[in-house]
Simulated assay, not measured.
Amino acid sequence: MTARFATDVVTFYHPGFWDLTSADAVRDWASANPESFWHRVMDALAEAGVTGIELTFAPGDIESALRAFGSAPAFRRELTARGLSVVSAFIADSDAPGWRDGGNLTAIVADAERRAAFLADVGAELLVAGLPMRTTYGTRPPFFVDAAYMTRMADIAHTVGEAVAQHGVKLAFHTESNSTLWYERDIDLFMALTDPRYVWLCPDSCHIALGGGDPVAVAHRHSQRIALAHWKDAVGPIDVELTIDDTVFAQQQPYMTELGTGIVDWRAWADAMSRTPGSGTVLIELDEAADPVAALRAGTAVARKALS
C-alpha cells in the first residue's frame, strides 16, 4: 500500500534536540517561543521526509499552534507551505475533562467539539482519545474494569463521537498501557459495546504488546474500525505491577524501543494495517528522540521494508 508517514509531536520533546537540560525547560521555552518551536519542528519533519503530524500535550498542542500562528487556517498555511499536514490530535492534556465518572459530560463534549472544530479548520479528520487509567493493583477499594464500567465509557464515547462527527471528525480510541483500554479483552469489550459509526480504534502496537497481547491479532479482529494506528516497538510485556500515578509513563519507557529492535512482527502488522480504513497513514511513534530526524528516518525505513 502507498501511505504517508506521520509522527506524534512528542517525538521532538527531548531536551537535547533543543540544547536544553530538562523536559520542563523545553516546555517553558516553547511556551515563551511557540512560533520558533513550531518552525523548528516543521523543518525537522521536512528534513526527515515525514509529512504528517499528530498534535498532543503541550508544547505540541492545539493551544500552542494557535498562540504561534493566530488561527487554525494560518497554522494550516504554514504547514502546507512545507508540504506538511495535521493527521490527528490526541486528547492528552492534563487539564482536559476526565471521563472517570461521566458526571461532567457537558464539559467533555464541549472540549471535544472545540478540538474537532480546530481539526476541521486545519483539514484533519481524526480526534484520538484514551480511556481513564487503571488504579495500582492491590489498591483498596479495588477498581474493576467490568461490564458496568465499560458501558459507562461506551455511553460517553457515543455522545462525544456523535458531537465531533458534526464537524466531519472521527473519534478513535488509543490503547494506552495501564489504562482501561489496554488488554486485548478491554479492547474487544469496548469495541463490542460501541457503535462503529461513531467510535473508531487507534491501536498502538507497542502498548498492546506491553500488556501481553498480540497487536496483529487485535488489528485483524477490528480491522474495519481502525482509523489510525501508532507504529511503535516493545522490548517485551511489562512483567511487574507498576505504580499508577504521575510517573507511570516514565516507568513504561524502559519497555519501549526503536522500530525493528523489539518483538512486534512488522510484516504481519503492515499486512493487517493494509486492510484498514486508516491504511493511508503510517504514524511512527518515537517518544522524545534525541535526534528526531535520524530516528524518524530509521523508523520509516523499517516501516517501508515491512510494507514492501
Rank of each mutant, 00 (worst) to 15 (best):
S64L: 05
F173S: 04
D24W: 03
D24V: 13
V160H: 11
A72K: 02
S223H: 15
G52Y: 05
A48V: 09
T51P: 11
R221P: 13
T276W: 12
T257P: 00
S64Q: 09
I208Q: 12
R267L: 02
T281E: 07
T159P: 02
D95K: 04
D204A: 04
A81Y: 02
V50E: 02
D43G: 10
G102P: 08
S94R: 15
A157H: 05
D121V: 06
V235M: 11
R27Q: 12
V264R: 05
A72M: 01
T21S: 15
A217L: 03
Q224L: 07
P141L: 11
E63C: 06
A268S: 10
A117S: 13
D61E: 03
Y137R: 13
V264W: 06
G262N: 10
D287L: 12
F143P: 00
F249C: 06
P237L: 12
V302F: 03
R77G: 11
A163I: 14
E162Q: 14
H230E: 12
R114Y: 11
T136H: 09
E288F: 09
A306K: 00
L105P: 05
I244D: 13
F12P: 00
S179Q: 02
E258Y: 11
T21L: 01
T194R: 05
T56H: 14
M273K: 02
D24T: 14
N33F: 09
F249L: 13
D265T: 09
